[in-house]
Simulated scan of single mutants.
Amino acid sequence: MTAVQPTILATCGGLTGGAWTDSAYGPLLHHAIELARVEGRAPRVTHINTAGGDQRHIEGAELEAARAAGVDATHLRLFPHPNLEDMRAHLLAQDVVWVSGGSLANLLALWRLHGLDHLLAEAWRSGVVLAGGSAGAVCWHEGGTTASFGPGIAPLADGLGLVPGSLAVHYDSDPNRRPAHQSAVGAGVLPDGYALDEGVGLVYRGTDVVDVIAERPGVSAWRVRRTADGGVEETRIVPRVLGTPTADAPDLSPTSTARNQIEEARTPR
C-alpha cells in the first residue's frame, strides 16, 4: 500500500510549460506523488488520456515531463484497443494514476465498456492515489458539469461516485461554468458539492476532504449547496498554497467553518 488510506486528488491542474521541455509536472501533480509516500525508488505514475482520445503527441509530452521529474511513467490507452495485456496488475503496481482532461462523457463510457471503472476503484481501495485535472477530477465524483456535449456546459450526473457530491472545474476561467453548475445544483439535477478555480485541488482520504490546496495565492475552492427554496448558496474555502507549512492549511477540525462547510456539503437534503 502506498497511500495511508484510499486517496483522491481532484484538481484544476496538471502539466505546465517546461523550461527545457515542452511540458513539466506542475505543483499539483507533484503533490499527488507526495501523497503516495514513495521512498527509495522512482515513483510509478500511469497517465490516462481517455478523455482526450489517447493522442500520441500528448503522451509524448507527458513522458518527457515525467523523465525530467525523475518519474517512472507509463500510459494506459484504450484507443484503438487497450495497450496493456493485464490492466489490473499494472494499475495495482502503480503509486499514482493521473487522468487528464477532455470529454468526461466519453471517458466514463469507455472506462465502463472496458471495465476500467472497477479496476480503478480496486486500485483506489488498495492505496494507489487517483488524481487528475478537469474531467480527470470530476470523474471520481457523483457528477458534475461538462462541455462534453458541445460548446455549452451541461450537467452529467453519472460519475463513478468514489467520493460524494458534485464537482465543477474552471470556475474562474470559463464564465459559462458557474451559472450552469449553480442551475444544475439548484434544480436538484446534481447534488451539493464543490467547485474549483484554476490551480486548486481537493484532497480526499476515503470520502472525506482533508486538505484544500492551490498552486498560487488568490484562487479559491467553493462549497456549492442547494437551499430550501431551490436557490444556491456558495461559500468560499481559502486553500493552502503548496509549499507553505501544513499548519497553514484550512482548518478542517470538527468546529471549524471550513469543516462545517464540508460536512454540510455531504449531508443529504
Rank of each mutant, 00 (worst) to 15 (best):
A10P: 04
T11M: 15
T11H: 05
C12Y: 15
C12I: 07
G14R: 03
G18P: 12
D22K: 13
D22C: 03
D22F: 11
Y25S: 09
Y25T: 11
G26H: 10
P27A: 13
H30L: 14
H30E: 13
I33G: 00
I33K: 05
E34F: 04
E39T: 11
R41L: 00
A42V: 01
P43H: 00
P43L: 00
P43F: 00
R44Q: 06
V45Q: 13
N49L: 10
N49K: 02
T50K: 04
A51V: 10
G52E: 12
Q55P: 00
Q55H: 01
Q55F: 00
R56T: 08
H57S: 10
H57N: 06
E62G: 10
E62D: 09
L63C: 06
E64Y: 00
E64S: 08
A65E: 04
A68K: 05
A68P: 01
A69V: 03
D72P: 01
A73Y: 02
A73M: 01
L76H: 14
L76R: 01
L76C: 02
L78K: 08
L78D: 07
P80H: 05
L84W: 13
E85M: 08
E85C: 03
D86L: 05
D86A: 07
M87G: 09
R88M: 02
H90C: 03
H90G: 04
L92P: 09
Q94C: 07
Q94V: 05
D95L: 03
V96D: 06
V97D: 08
V99S: 13
V99Q: 11
G102F: 13
S103G: 03
L104C: 09
W111C: 09
W111Q: 14
L116E: 11
D117C: 04
L119M: 14
E122Y: 12
A123M: 09
R125Y: 00
S126C: 00
G127S: 06
G133V: 13
G136S: 05
